[in-house]
Design a protein around this nucleic acid. Structure first.
Lengths: 105, 105
DNA sequence: CCCGTAGTTCGACAATCATCAAACAGTTCG
DNA sequence: CGAACTGTTTGATGATTGTCGAACTACGGG
């Protein structure tokens, strides 16, 4: 399971990963709840996509370095890599997560 | 020539527009020089793309609401819509323009 | 009036992307 | 064991994207 290191994070890649409504909603949900499983996020955020699509989005986020996945039993628990993102791109995550931007369209 | 209004700016669209190295370099150049023409930017930023490709990128930036274009003779002068972006997405532009992120890869 | 400069528009093309269903794999629990 | 649950992988498909060259439009200077 690929988890890029902090120094490897690419700004265009991170921006591209965030530039999708479903992924933005996922990130927003993670910012709220801290740690959660794919299916749970999908449900809580009201994402109407198939599980394979959700799996795809989660992978994009992970490979961009935005989230971290750990395996716990049958579930994959995701967390935001807040510290790493803040270290590499200060202010970016905060800007994107501002509550008044909640409509992710 | 399409110039979306502030309230119409969409976060995913803005992020998608910024998620391309050539466009990011364009925005960065505009932040430095203030106002400049497409060809000038392309030259100054060392962008090795055809003029039709450059025209395409400029259009994406404009339609995302990131830049403003005005016609002056045969040239199109671009400016960053700093105030509008700051009003709608506070901190986003600052985060993306941080000098230590200069390598736009 | 013609020529050079500055961009746009129009296909075209290859690459990437978001999406899905189906099959698969690992976990948990009865 | 076997069923239910969680998520990944694998094609497949249609849409979008970045790129180009060529043709076109518009302005400015000799």
């Amino acid at each position: 399971m690929v988890h890029p290191q902090v120094e490897e994070l690419s700004l265009p890649k991170v921006l591209a990963a965030l530039a999708d409504p479903a992924r933005l909603a996922t990130v927003r949900m993670l910012a709220q709840v801290g740690e959660s499983a794919c299916g749970q996020i999908q449900h809580d955020a009201g994402l109407e996509v198939s599980k394979s699509t959700m799996s795809h989005h989660v992978r994009i986020l992970r490979e961009a370095g935005i989230t971290h996945s750990r395996v716990q039993g049958a579930r994959r628990l995701l967390t935001l890599r807040r510290d790493d993102l803040d270290a590499r791109f200060p202010g970016l995550l905060d800007a994107v997560l501002r509550p008044e931007l909640a409509e992710t369209r």
